[in-house]
Each structure stands twice: as structure tokens, then as C-alpha cells.
Design a protein around this nucleic acid. Structure first.
Length: 271
DNA sequence: CAGCGCCCCTGCCCGC
DNA sequence: TGCGGGCAGGGGCGCT
């Protein structure tokens, strides 16, 4: 999936095309996602314009004057801007057509994504109201992270992948940030110094920003809003490189499973 | 209540 | 070439 950089890339790709143009038609081709796509979407959106597009965690928030369309891309979702009428892909679920002649299609083969509507401020939605800070915000720093980590036995990788602690850091970038920080992914969160957390925060930001600059990471099928793949894959130091030589010390990278997610690290460079 | 699996689903890759 | 098994970028939820 789309981790934060891929969602941010999608946001930037779709924004200009979907903003401030009345929605002329909505096609729900397959309502089955993580939750059913609301059948009454059209009643909220038809003839309305999207006045704001933003991201919170990995949620895309498209707001009109009366509410917000919440979109999550799950593991395999992508949004594309197309010309209405071109052939649908097999797993195109939802299409919004705009008066400007563009259409936005959500495709999600694995259906772990979501399309929801809320008439309340989106941040108050139950899926969003408990979320931790954005990793690229100033609020994400050692002053915040270090005290939270005290007495926590959970592995640091799981700690930074917990959206109540900080949002948007998924499996790829958790692996990468820990490698860049020289921190062993299985180290207990509570046993890491303030200084190392400071470094970890900086590395998280650097890696996420670098990935955004490259249009995200395309492993298999991710495309940004205008159909382009991301090029950060070639920058990956550890993710997907189990058994291959460490880029720093050449020792073979090790892989373990942590919280059911593949975890790759260097036994020599990460302590 | 923190923490841990399970599970939702399709597709792809690997080994036999 | 076909098929079964395992695994994949997320995260809500139920159970202990």
C-alpha cells in the first residue's frame, strides 16, 4: 500500500483535477470495500464541488461545503484521474465525474480500502479522532516520543508503526528509518535513549520527505493520481533485501517477523 | 486496558 | 503448464 508518501503523492496528483468543479455523476461499480460504500453518496455529492483536499495519516479527505469524503487506499488502492468513458479496470470501485471533464477512479483489488462520508468535521470521525501526530509535523520529536516510550516493552518498530503514537509510518518506512538510525527493530521502545529517539525522528522525516520527492515507492502496482509510478524503491536500503548485503557493512541482512510484518535489518549496523 | 492474533481480499511468485 | 502455499504496502476488532 500506499504508506504516507504514496498517499501524499496521490493527494498532489489529484488535487488540481478535483477541486472546485461540480460533481456531475457518481458511479459505484462495486460497493464492497472494507465497509460498504454508502449508497447515498450521490445525495451528498452531486452538483457539489470539492473545496478542499487534504491528508490526515493515510486518509484522504475531500471536503465540500456540507461534509467530507474520506478515502483510504488500504493495501492495494490507488486513485487515478482519467477521461470519463475510457474502459474500466477490473477492480475500479468508484468513479466521480466532474464538470471539468475529468473523472477520478478508485481501484482497489484487495478491497482493504474505504470510501466513507461524514457530515461532521472529519477529524472527529471515529477512524481519525484517536490518531497521533503527523510524522512530518513539528509535534513529532523526541520531546513527544521519548516520554511516551518509557516503560513500554513493545518493540520499537511496532511502537513507531502504532497510529496512536504517530501516524503514517508503515512497514517499508519503519524498516528504513530504523536502519538509517542504527536501531535494532526488536529493541524495547522503553530502552532507547532520548538522543536516539531524536535521531529516529529526524530520520523518519528525512526518509518520508525523500520518498515523497520521488513520488513514493512502487513495489508492484502503486501509481500516483496521474498514473505515474514512484521511484523510491531504488533508494530502499533494507526493505525487500533480506539476505542481500548491507549497503553499509556488506554483511547479509536478516529478516524476522515482528507483529506479523516482515522486518529486515542489519545485525551489525543496528543495535 | 495493553497487547496480540486474526481477518478482510486478490494477485503474484515460488516450488513441486 | 498447473496448482497449492505463502506472502504482500493496513488496520479494525475481538479476545486474553
Amino acid at each position: 500500500m500506499p504508506e504516507l508518501p504514496e498517499v501524499e503523492t496521490t493527494l498532489r496528483g489529484i488535487s488540481a483535477h478535483v477541486l472546485n468543479s461540480p460533481i456531475s455523476r457518481i458511479n459505484i461499480r462495486n460497493a464492497q470495500l472494507r465497509w460498504p460504500v454508502p449508497a447515498d453518496l450521490a445525495s451528498h455529492l452531486l452538483n457539489q464541488s470539492i473545496t478542499q483536499v487534504r491528508r490526515r495519516a493515510k486518509y484522504l479527505l475531500l471536503s465540500t461545503d456540507t461534509g467530507t469524503l474520506i478515502i483510504h487506499l488500504g493495501m492495494s488502492g490507488s486513485l487515478r484521474i482519467v477521461t470519463p468513458g475510457i474502459a474500466y479496470d477490473k477492480h475500479d470501485h468508484v468513479e466521480l465525474c466532474f464538470a471539468n471533464g475529468k473523472a477520478m477512479r478508485l481501484k482497489d483489488p484487495r478491497r482493504f480500502g474505504a470510501v466513507l462520508w461524514t457530515s461532521d468535521p472529519a477529524e472527529e470521525h471515529p477512524l481519525l479522532n484517536h490518531l497521533g501526530p503527523e510524522p512530518l509535523s513539528d509535534a513529532f520529536n523526541a520531546d513527544y516520543l521519548y516520554p511516551l516510550s518509557r516503560k513500554k516493552n513493545v518493540a520499537v518498530k511496532q511502537f513507531i508503526m502504532n497510529s496512536k503514537i504517530v501516524v503514517g509510518i508503515g512497514n517499508i518506512y519503519a524498516n528504513e528509518a530504523l536502519f538509517a538510525s542504527g536501531i535494532h527493530p526488536q529493541r524495547a521502545a522503553g530502552k532507547i535513549s532520548r538522543q536516539r529517539y531524536e535521531n529516529l525522528c529526524i530520520k523518519c522525516k528525512q526518509i518520508l520527505e525523500q520518498a515523497i520527492a520521488q513520488g513514493g515507492t512502487t513495489l508492484k502496482d502503486f501509481v500516483g493520481g496521474t498514473g505515474q509510478p514512484g521511484y523510491f524503491k531504488q533508494e530502499l536500503q533494507v526493505y525487500g533485501r533480506s539476505g542481500q548485503p548491507c549497503m553499509q557493512c556488506s554483511k547479509p541482512l536478516k529478516e524476522v517477523r515482528l507483529g506479523n510484518r516482515s522486518t529486515v535489518y542489519c545485525t551489525h549496523c543496528q543495535k
